[in-house]
């Protein structure tokens, strides 16, 4: 099916820059909902979106992977519980935890975050919101770690607004884990204002120690295009704070590419 035309000029990265080479895989499971939005965000950020199918046994030479939101396998058992066993997830886990070279950058959004925790790529887990209801609203976050592959273009403690939509979004972990996350600065995003779901320590997103794997419950891919994002001071739906997540990874990759070229 033909895609809705891109609005705005975000995708026009200057010809010949390293940006054009960035191939970002976007994973689709049966029941994934936001894969098209994630692919669009990748293109708006200046990269090339590469569709990846859960049953594939290869990463198709992508430079990074986004696992988008939705209800993989209906999430009937537990969110992400079945998806973590997909063949592609084994390849992603291997590449993301590779000892040598640069590990594969992986971003999990919402259901993707849940899958990453079920796959033990990130600590903790998600349970039902404390109010037990589905909630969909713009959410203010503070970016607390700008050294990850997916947050490098944010400024430290920058406040951003992106949509949050879930029913199972309450981040939980045992006290030791929470202490370690806080001590090592592994909280990537934190809810600002009222905690929307009871998450421990207001945690909205976390990163692994190497900064290549990041997961968050809110949806940066839904705030990448003026007119279709979150509300901001310039007008309704004008917020594009989420786009920085995608420009971050592309510039991170460009950085590692040029380093690679220099060697």
């Amino acid at each position: 099916m033909t895609e809705t035309p891109l609005i705005g000029e975000y995708s026009s990265s200057p010809d010949g820059t390293a940006l054009d080479g960035a191939r970002i895989g976007v994973v689709t499971f049966p029941g994934t909902l936001d894969d098209r939005d994630a692919a669009r965000a990748v293109r708006l950020g200046g990269g090339t979106a590469v569709p990846l199918w859960h049953a594939d046994d290869t990463l198709s030479d992508v430079d990074a992977v986004v696992i988008p939101g939705g209800f993989s396998y209906g999430d009937y058992l537990r969110a992400g519980a079945i998806s973590r066993f997909a063949p592609l997830m084994s390849r992603i886990t291997e590449a993301a935890t590779a000892d040598s070279g640069s590990p594969l950058p992986v971003l999990g959004i919402c259901n993707g975050f849940q899958i990453l925790t079920e796959a033990h790529l990130l600590p903790g887990s998600m349970i039902k919101n404390d109010h037990l209801k589905f909630r969909c609203a713009d959410q203010v976050l503070r970016v607390e770690n700008t050294s990850t592959a997916w947050t490098s273009q944010f400024t430290q403690d920058e406040l951003i607004t992106v949509p949050l939509k879930n029913q199972d979004g309450q981040y939980v972990a045992d006290e030791d884990t929470l202490t370690r996350l806080e001590g090592e600065g592994l909280v990537a995003f934190r809810y600002v204002g009222s905690n929307p779901n009871g998450s421990r320590h207001d945690i909205a997103g976390v990163t692994n120690a190497r900064g290549n794997v990041v997961g968050l419950m809110p949806h940066p891919e839904h705030a990448v295009e003026a007119g279709y994002g979150s509300d901001d001071s310039t007008g309704m739906r004008n917020g594009t704070d989420g786009l920085t997540v995608f420009t971050s990874i592309i510039s991170s990759l460009a950085g590692s590419h040029s380093e690679g070229g220099a060697l």
Binding site: Y73, G74, Y76, L77, I82, F85
Partner: peptide, 14 residues
């Protein structure tokens, strides 16, 4: 039972 059905169809793959 959609829940049971989804789990049943995933089991053989695992």
């Amino acid at each position: 039972d959609p829940q049971g059905k989804a789990i049943a169809s995933a089991l053989p793959h695992l």
